[in-house]
Simulated scan of single mutants.
Amino acid sequence: MDATSILEDAGFQVLEAMNVAQALAVLERHHEAVQLLFTDVHMPGHGDGFELARHTAERWPHIAVVVASGNAKPGPGDLPERATFIGKPFSAEIVRHHVRKTLPDEKHPELLKT
Rank of each mutant, 00 (worst) to 15 (best):
V14K: 02
H62E: 14
V20T: 15
V20P: 01
V99F: 06
V41N: 02
P109S: 08
F12M: 06
L111A: 15
K88C: 09
G47F: 01
A33N: 09
H31C: 11
T39C: 07
L52W: 00
A17V: 11
A72I: 02
A68C: 14
E32S: 08
W60K: 01
V41K: 01
V95K: 03
V41F: 01
N71M: 12
L103R: 10
E58V: 00
A57K: 03
I6K: 01
P80E: 05
A21N: 09
F85W: 05
P89G: 07
F85N: 10
L52G: 00
H55P: 00
L7D: 09
E93M: 13
P76C: 03
E110W: 12
Q22L: 06
A23K: 06
A23I: 08
V65I: 05
G47I: 01
L79E: 10
G45L: 04
E51G: 05
E16A: 08
V34D: 03
S69E: 04
R96F: 13
L15D: 10
P61N: 04
A83Q: 07
G45K: 05
L24F: 03
P89M: 11
H30W: 07
H55S: 00
V34E: 04
P61Y: 02
G47R: 04
D40N: 12
H42K: 04
R96Q: 15
G11S: 09
V95Q: 03
G75I: 04
G47N: 04
D78V: 11
M43Q: 03
F50D: 01
L103H: 06
G47E: 05
M18R: 15
T4P: 00
L15C: 04
F50N: 01
D48K: 02
H31P: 03
A83Y: 12
K88A: 12
S69I: 02
R59I: 00
Q35K: 09
E110V: 10
A64K: 09
T56M: 09
Q22G: 12
K101W: 12
E58T: 04
G11N: 08
E32N: 09
H46S: 05
D78Y: 09
L36T: 07
P80F: 06
H108E: 11
R54D: 00
R59D: 00
E28W: 06
P76N: 08
G11P: 07
A53Y: 01
F12L: 07
A25Q: 14
D105E: 14
S91W: 08
T114L: 13
P109H: 10
L79W: 07
A33D: 11
N19H: 10
L79C: 03
I63S: 05
H30E: 14
M18G: 12
A3D: 10
I63R: 08
F85K: 10
L103Y: 11
L112Y: 02
G75H: 10
G49L: 00
V20E: 13
L79N: 07
E32T: 12
A68E: 12
V14M: 06
R59A: 08
I63Y: 06
I6G: 02
